[in-house]
């Protein structure tokens, strides 16, 4: 009889690596526009500091950096995510529903992507993306409000919104 081992390392082996028919994303299209991102970032921070939370959210969702997921997280995207987390965290849980209602379907989809990305960023210290976590204790408090955002975004955009956030190859 085969001996049962407790090792589960094989589950993490990337067997797809050996598949010559493996699907590859179109890499050339994955570059993010860092100039545009930093410009939008500044605009959003300005609005947030001016107390205009809803406008800051709209500005941040206007044209965020989107690209295919890479092994090393794009620093432009990480910086942008931090700004969005600051905006989302600035809302009180009672204000979230009203803010989400103002969003279009596409903006709602983007919001959902940021919510999921934010949860990953705040929760999983074993990913490279969350390595920055060490010095990011300050944002940890946002985890709670992200759940409220998720609930409201699901109500506004439906389950389709969740599927789009999860299935999209281009992440925020």
């Amino acid at each position: 009889m085969a001996k049962r081992t407790r090792s589960d390392g094989f589950r993490r082996t990337d067997i797809d690596k050996f598949d010559e028919d493996k699907y590859h994303d179109e890499v050339e299209a994955s570059q993010v526009d860092s100039a545009l991102a930093s410009q939008m970032q500044k605009e959003a921070i300005g609005l947030l500091n001016g107390g205009k939370k809803a406008e800051a959210l709209k500005a941040a969702l206007k044209s965020p950096p989107l690209s295919y997921r890479t092994a090393q997280p794009d620093p432009v995207k990480v910086e942008y995510l931090k700004v969005v987390l600051d905006i989302l965290g600035a809302f009180k849980s009672t204000e979230v529903a009203a803010a989400v209602k103002e969003l279009s379907q596409d903006e709602c989809d983007l919001l959902m992507k940021f919510v999921y990305r934010g949860m990953e960023y705040l929760a999983r210290p074993n990913t490279a993306a969350a390595k920055a976590m060490e010095e990011d204790e300050a944002r940890r408090a946002y985890s709670n409000i992200l759940l409220t955002w998720h609930k409201q975004a699901t109500e506004h955009g439906g389950l389709g919104c969740v599927v789009r956030a999860m299935a999209d190859r281009k992440t925020v």
Binding site: D106, D109, G158, L159, G160, V163, R164
Partner: peptide, 14 residues
């Protein structure tokens, strides 16, 4: 109509 593509995001599952 010039091969125009229309897209409609749905609230339901795919």
């Amino acid at each position: 109509d010039n091969l125009k593509m229309h897209r409609l995001p749905c609230k339901a599952l795919p």
